[in-house]
């Protein structure tokens, strides 16, 4: 067994303690060496500690802010100015920390900013998911009776839970996307906003115009910041959502193009294709596939 198999095997035993066969296999493995016993003890400790963690994170900065509002009147008697400093420090802190929720005062919007440097995701109160690239900022309704999200900056992929009674609105700059249940990607650039539909159908509204976008060919539209013009090029752009979906689909595409998409997705400088196969057309679907496996599949399909 390699290391991954062992961890998977241990998890299997931890989640299924009543299974005698698994427990017997586990005991046998534990008897093999002291090292195994250490590994098991550590993973079990982690597994159990993680299980008792509350589902919602505790936000220290937000907590302090709330507390300091209660404290303020008493503090003001003695020291006015230091309190302002503390308040300012608290605001700076929560901006710097990122990746946490905070609520705009007196309003129903919750703003969320990704921690720098990494893709992040959140689950909304209706169970819809949002994946965000680093540097993304968005806001959503706290109670989420109205399913409304504002993309303020960056790029986000929305996986919207179907609810025929309540539409789901995403506003990004001057564009509004209306959906009932689907998955799509929205990106704000300095001169335009781009929407790609990965699954289902959405309607895009901007400057009084409306465009219905469906997944598959023709699933991308851009809205220009200057003139609100909607552009709708041909082609299937689903693979541009792969950063969030881990889903790469190539239909009858040239090997050379497939190789460059794979290289970009797995952060490789190059995926090599032998000269005489560059223009060979291949069809390939990769879902959540680890890099090595993906490259193996690619090579096999290509017959190189």
């Amino acid at each position: 067994m390699n290391n991954n198999d062992i961890t998977g095997f241990i998890i299997d035993c931890l989640t299924d303690p009543g299974n005698r066969d698994k427990q017997a296999a586990l005991n046998k493995w534990l008897e093999e060496s002291e090292e195994n016993q250490h590994l098991y003890a550590e993973l079990k400790q982690l597994w159990i500690a993680a299980a008792a963690i509350p589902p919602m994170p505790f936000n220290v900065d937000e907590g302090w802010q709330e507390l300091s509002e209660q404290m303020a009147p008493a503090a003001r008697v003695k020291r006015m100015s230091p309190w302002k400093i503390v308040a300012a420090a608290a605001v700076l802190l929560f901006l710097a920390a990122g990746g946490w929720w905070w609520q705009t005062s007196g309003d129903d919007w919750i703003t969320y900013a990704t921690p720098t440097g990494d893709i992040d995701s959140i689950t909304l109160p209706d169970s819809s998911m949002i994946h965000m690239k680093a540097g993304t900022v968005l806001a959503y309704r706290k109670l989420f009776k109205e399913r409304e999200v504002k993309l303020l900056q960056g790029e986000a992929y929305f996986d919207v839970v179907k609810d025929p009674q309540r539409q789901f609105l995403v506003t990004a700059d001057k564009s509004t996307v209306k959906v009932l249940g689907t998955a799509f990607n929205v990106r704000i650039e300095s001169t335009f906003t781009e929407v790609i539909v990965f699954e289902g159908k959405i309607s895009l509204h901007s400057g009084g115009k409306k465009l219905v976008l469906s997944s598959g060919s023709g699933n991308l539209a851009t809205v220009s910041r200057n003139d609100d013009e909607i552009r709708h090029p041909i082609g299937n752009y689903s693979n541009q959502c792969a950063w969030a979906t881990n889903d790469l689909v190539f239909e009858n595409e040239e090997a050379e193009n497939v190789a460059s998409v794979l290289a970009a997705h797995y952060h490789l400088s190059e995926v090599k294709v032998v000269e005489n196969l560059r223009h060979k057309r291949i069809t390939l679907r990769l879902h959540n596939t680890p890099q090595d496996e993906a490259l193996e599949i690619f090579a096999a399909v290509l017959d190189q």
Partner: peptide, 18 residues
């Protein structure tokens, strides 16, 4: 009523107390 120290105590311990 040293708010600075009080905030440090809060920042250090509030999450584990939660």
């Amino acid at each position: 009523r040293n708010a600075g120290v009080f905030q440090k105590i809060y920042a250090a311990y509030s999450e584990e107390l939660f």
